[in-house]
Amino acid sequence: MNRLLPAIVNRLVIIIPYAWLLVFFLIPFVIVLRISLSEAAVAMPPYLPVFAWADGLSGFIDNVRQFSFDNYVWLTEDALYTNAYISSLTIALISTALTLLIAYPIAYGMARAPATLRPTLLMLVILPFWTSFLIRVYAWIAILKPEGLLNQLLLSTGIISQPLIILNTNTAIYIGIVYSYLPFMVLPLYSALEKMDHSLTEAAQDLGCTPISAFWRITFPLSLPGVVAGCLLVFIPAVGEFVIPDLLGGSETLMIGKTLWNEFNANRDWPVSSAVAAILLMILVVPIMFFQNAQSRLDREGR
């Protein structure tokens, strides 16, 4: 008994994350997949076929026979969806690159700051999370709109004579995404840079590197695990981002999150929106696996 208990506890500890994944990821995904193979219907729920316990096994098999890939075929035939996917990926990619560019110097500065100052700086990075995400995005509307704070400032200082049109453009989306996801990039970068031994860059300089080449040959390669983690944390949610393009972007901005929302709410076409979601997931799984692979390799090398 005494020995059994720890063994069970040990098992449980391993099982919990898997159970979590099963309940909150795999089961919902199977449901989405199953709806995506159905057919839209004016009913409740709005798709066919519907499984019922009363049908028994033969009814179940009949129902499964009705599944089809029509929705997926439909998605490939309409350029709207392909364009939405491509534009989502492009916007996410550019935003991720911009976030990395801005976050790296911040994280570097934090990691090199005096140890006593670092907790405060870390706090400042996390501080925006204390107010609602939605309110912060709305605040950007007030800043970016033609008669907003930014234009007022630029006009009053005489830098521009005509208000800049930023709101409802892709630029506004980039600003929104970079702003919202910056902490997710800064934190992994900071943790990678902070644990790095400063004597490594000294050694590089001792061997003839200028501070800049020491950065590129030592610091940056060693921070790659942080770069990869940060990029994943920004890229993946950015691809499916809905709120930021909806509030800051223009009507012509196509993003997959918005498309999905339209199918689901406006058209009430659950099967097609499920298919959109399923494809999105598959598109994301490829880079995720690639990055995970790269990361575990880097981690192994880093020790």
């Binding site: 004597s199 000294e202 050694a203 590197c209 390669p221 020790r303």
Partner: peptide, 27 residues
């Protein structure tokens, strides 16, 4: 430091973890 005709062996060795022994020496 990078222009002094002096090289240092560090107290902590400071070997570059992402490079092989060879690459460290060739650095």
């Amino acid at each position: 430091p990078y222009r002094r005709p002096v090289n240092m062996m560090f107290q902590s060795y400071a070997l570059f973890p992402h490079m092989t022994v060879e690459a460290n020496i060739a650095f």
